[in-house]
Design a binder for these strands. Structure first.
Lengths: 220, 220
DNA sequence: GCATTGAAAACAAACGATTGATGCATCAGA
DNA sequence: TCTGATGCATCAATCGTTTGTTTTCAATGC
């Protein structure tokens, strides 16, 4: 077999990932993909079975990468909040590194044929379940406010870390590791018991606030 | 008796909103909409100029509702963290109530013709700017950890509250007002100064876990 | 070392279906 | 009768996909 077959496949998935991310799955045509690859659109079907199949392959690869990352997280040290922090940091890094495919997953997953969805969807539930477990344990140990709604907090935190991919980039101004650390800390802090701090009286004079500027311009 | 023109228009936007939410903008056809409304697809063009125009009208209505809600928020009482809590609560309620159009906005906004996007996009930036301002003020007053990354925290909180619409429903098990209150509190708590709490020794049977030591210190 | 061969890889052309959109006819109510 | 509202037929373009053919190139035989 030709050695560049695998290379072509990688090229196709890479190009398709980029287009799906930018334009969305259903408004990306096979023509778009084949143009970017440099083939005729019919030739793509030598590598894939269908457009939905291509989406499935991309997301399944993401799924595998996600499983591998999660398996590397060590849960055997520290209190639940420390563990949660470590876990959330990993999630943040993962989101930044795989932002493209993650965005496609969160937005276009429903285009995957239903009978093939189950092979992918398990991972996300496990994400949320892991967070939920750690939050629950933290509350049982008295590390959280006693009236904390565990389910709500876990869902909120899961959703927050799932949205990180939209704005955290691996090549941003700050090192990714530091930013992910901060993210994990802020999110973990959201269920910690706050100290009763008084505001230092830094009297601010009349502050202009963000205001609704309705420049009702009608370009129509 | 031609007053049912407005009624038809409402019906069209309502049906389109539902379809756009469930299937996405680009995979919802005019045929789908006209079928649901009970007209032939050609007849829809008596009410709209184009498919993108219909999307624009829907999102602009959402935009207006958003502006109205924000204008009602009172910023003149309490410390920044209290104000932030109030603001985030309003955002959460808004997200739950207008979940359909918000989901469309966050996912399919880029289908709005570029020359019309500016009329809508201002609102979202203001959301984030308001959060950023309040977080900054809180830090200046010493209400947050001194090493808090203001920009990161604000972005994180904004993203978290923007994702609430995916899981918070007005007719959920808990009253919407209570749930939104909890959400706002948890998110505000994320930038509060935590107290150094020690975990109560709650013996957990089963697997040995959660070694509670003096690891409660926060690095960074 | 060169010609032959056969599968891999890509082209070329078309398929039927659907897309958003248009123009005109028609119908009903004021 | 006049006008707002809808039906009806159709447009060109594009969609994802299929089929048959051609090109490319490494392995093979001699």
């Amino acid at each position: 077999m030709r050695a560049d077959a695998a290379e072509r496949w990688q090229q196709i998935t890479r190009v398709a990932t980029d287009l799906f991310r930018r334009k969305g799955f259903s408004s990306t045509s096979m023509q778009d993909i084949s143009d970017a690859v440099g083939l005729l659109k019919g030739s793509l079907y030598y590598y894939i079975d269908s457009k939905e199949d291509l989406l499935f392959e991309i997301l399944r690869d993401l799924h595998k990468d996600g499983e591998r990352i999660i398996a590397q997280v060590k849960f055997d040290s520290g209190d639940p909040l420390t563990q949660l922090r470590i876990y959330l940091k990993q999630c943040a890094v993962f989101g930044a590194v795989h932002a493209d495919r993650l965005a496609i997953f969160l937005r276009d997953f429903h285009y995957v044929p239903p009978e093939r969805q189950s092979e992918i969807i398990s991972e996300r539930k496990m994400y949320q379940r892991t967070v939920g477990t750690l939050v629950t344990e933290a509350k049982e140990l008295g590390l959280t406010p006693p009236n904390l709604d565990v389910s709500l907090a876990a869902t909120l935190i899961s959703g927050a870390v799932a949205g990180v991919h939209e704005w955290l980039h691996p090549d941003g101004p700050r090192p990714l590791d530091q930013a992910a650390d901060d993210i994990a800390e802020v999110l973990t802090n959201s269920i910690r018991i706050p100290s009763e701090t008084e505001a230092k009286s830094v009297a601010k004079k009349g502050r202009p606030r963000a205001k609704v500027s309705s420049k009702a311009r009608r370009p129509v």
